[in-house]
Amino acid sequence: MLSAMLSTPIARLRLVAIIEAISYLVLLFVAMPLKYVWGIPLAVRVAGPVHGILFVAFLIALFRAADARSWSWRRSALVFATSLVPFATFWIDRSLREEDLAPAPATS
């Protein structure tokens, strides 16, 4: 079942994007307050690198999906920008899901 869910570049992008978005929210709303409000820097030392690795995985998945679907620079930049704004990834996910269900563009 998992392999069917991850059978397209957009499906893989969606999965990585959601996991990366959750790690970003944990970093911003859990780890950062723990460090700066309660003086517990360990949370950032753990969440920071995890988020960084997931962000790199997101970029790789984004480039692969953009290439597979022949996205314009504008579309690619929009998807990238959503990764920088908290909760925006969840907003763009619906559009990605709909595009994933649509037929892929013909390649020449």
Rank of each mutant, 00 (worst) to 15 (best):
S7L: 04
T8A: 05
P9M: 03
R12Y: 05
R12V: 10
R14W: 04
L15T: 02
E20M: 06
S23K: 02
L25F: 05
V26I: 15
L28N: 10
F29T: 06
A31D: 08
A31S: 10
M32I: 15
W38D: 11
W38Q: 10
G39P: 07
G39Q: 07
I40E: 13
A43S: 14
A43V: 10
V44Q: 06
A47F: 01
A47Y: 03
G48S: 14
H51N: 01
H51L: 04
I53L: 15
L54Y: 00
F55C: 00
A57E: 01
L59M: 15
I60Y: 09
L62A: 13
R64A: 15
R64H: 12
R64E: 14
A66H: 11
D67L: 00
D67M: 02
R69Y: 13
R69K: 12
S70I: 04
S70L: 09
W71I: 00
W73C: 01
W73M: 13
R74Q: 13
R74H: 09
A77H: 11
F80M: 14
A81P: 00
T82H: 15
S83Y: 10
S83L: 09
P86H: 13
A88Y: 11
A88M: 10
A88C: 01
F90P: 07
I92M: 12
D93Q: 13
R94Q: 06
S95F: 09
L96I: 06
L96K: 08
R97I: 09
R97P: 00
R97K: 13
E99F: 08
E99Y: 02
A102G: 03
A104K: 15
A104C: 07
P105G: 04
P105F: 00
A106M: 09
T107S: 15
T107Q: 11
